[in-house]
Amino acid sequence: MGSRRLAAAALAAVAFFVAAPVDAQKAPSPQQSAALATYERALGDFKSVLAERRRQIEAKQPLPNLPGQALYLARVAVISSYKDLTDVTPSRIGRPNKFEIPPAYFDADIEPLVEEYGRLFDIMEAPPAGAQSSPTPFKDVVDLAVAIARAKGLAPEHAETAGRISLGLFFAETNGKQNVRNARSNTYMGSFQTGPSEDRNGRRKWEKIKADVAAIDPHLSARNDREEARARGTDQRFNHWTNVRNGLMNAHADLFREIPGIVKTLPDPIDQMKLFQLIQIVPTPTRSALKSGDLLNYRVSSPRIMRYLRNNSIFAFGQADRAKTSASYREIFAAMWLFNRKFEKAIAKYAEIKAR
């Protein structure tokens, strides 16, 4: 009798564990169904705009003004709606992806679509005819940054840090491609994506320190003279050397003086690159944060600044991120995950340059 009771109890336990997963698979809630429908619609739109742009390019049809904007917005919608979906259905969070996007924001199954997105941008942003490329684009960035930092008074060690950071900016702006156009802007062009006024401002600042640079590095100064002669009468943004030089002088050279303190506050090279990239995106609050003495806890709350951050893929994806009305720099750094892969490439390229 006792053995029959034990067997019955065992069968009941087995039945419970077999049935439990079925019971757990409840019908999706209205919120979950709506989030899934929104994601599937965004994914369909992304596929559609990719196919349309590919068809136009292969048919050699005229492209619309800012041909990359529709693609960019469609990609943002896919990532945003996927994050909204995983927020209400965590089981949809999948495996890691090759782009190192947090899995809660991205379904690795659509990697081929994002690869096609990149190929289309490569075509749309190809350098114009007559662009003056360099056979050593990465080394140029490092050499220019180091020379400028030395002219600003930095010791060799910290000047090398300026070189590594500047290489990160090159990857952040163009993924390391020189002389590119911009499929989302008619203003910002070249290896460092500067506008005409920024380029002119950088040239003026260069004139003030070029004699100091020549004293420190005559070889680099001679190279600069050759590039200036080559670029004479053209848009200097489409000579790799002069655009990098002018871009660094415009936005970053004065901040190079702060590198010794920045390295103490931000020992991680990727965080250092993020800080200088924020100088590119939101310079005024970033400089204020540095002066505050408490960089990581400094908060921004201006709607305009938050809009600039979102337009540069920071707090841009999903309702929860987009609802933020303020953020500390610690939170901003954490939200710059889309830049991590680019900065890792820059660090690897810097190590390769130094090894030579």
Score class of each variant (00 low, 15 high):
67 P>I: 04
41 R>Q: 15
48 S>Q: 15
71 L>W: 00
54 R>M: 07
57 I>F: 05
72 Y>K: 12
61 Q>W: 02
63 L>I: 01
58 E>W: 05
40 E>N: 15
70 A>Q: 15
47 K>Q: 14
57 I>T: 04
57 I>Q: 07
50 L>W: 10
65 N>D: 11
45 D>T: 10
77 A>E: 13
76 V>A: 15
44 G>E: 11
63 L>N: 03
63 L>R: 00
54 R>E: 14
64 P>L: 00
45 D>I: 05
75 R>G: 11
45 D>L: 11
58 E>C: 05
49 V>G: 08
44 G>M: 11
39 Y>C: 09
54 R>D: 15
57 I>K: 01
73 L>V: 02
46 F>Q: 04
69 Q>I: 03
64 P>V: 01
42 A>I: 08
73 L>N: 09
70 A>C: 05
43 L>C: 11
47 K>Y: 11
57 I>C: 03
52 E>A: 09
61 Q>D: 06
49 V>I: 15
59 A>I: 03
57 I>L: 09
47 K>S: 14
45 D>Q: 14
72 Y>D: 08
78 V>T: 09
67 P>N: 01
61 Q>G: 01
73 L>A: 06
45 D>R: 13
78 V>L: 09
48 S>M: 13
55 R>N: 14
53 R>A: 05
50 L>Q: 08
44 G>K: 12
73 L>G: 03
68 G>M: 00
51 A>W: 05
60 K>V: 02
53 R>S: 08
70 A>Y: 05
41 R>D: 12
78 V>F: 08
58 E>I: 09
73 L>S: 07
51 A>V: 07
73 L>C: 03
66 L>R: 05
56 Q>S: 14
40 E>T: 07
49 V>H: 08
40 E>Y: 08
70 A>S: 12
76 V>N: 15
71 L>S: 00
43 L>K: 12
63 L>S: 00
61 Q>P: 02
41 R>S: 15
53 R>L: 07
39 Y>P: 08
46 F>Y: 10
55 R>Y: 13
52 E>F: 06
67 P>R: 02
72 Y>P: 03
69 Q>S: 09
52 E>N: 09
65 N>I: 04
70 A>V: 10
63 L>Q: 06
76 V>E: 15
42 A>R: 11
75 R>W: 10
76 V>G: 11
46 F>H: 02
65 N>C: 00
64 P>E: 04
74 A>H: 02
39 Y>K: 08
69 Q>T: 11
61 Q>T: 00
55 R>E: 15
44 G>V: 06
53 R>V: 10
46 F>T: 01
68 G>E: 00
39 Y>F: 15
42 A>Y: 08
50 L>M: 08
64 P>Y: 03
75 R>P: 04
41 R>V: 07
66 L>M: 02
50 L>T: 05
70 A>L: 09
46 F>A: 02
59 A>K: 11
66 L>E: 06
51 A>I: 05
52 E>G: 06
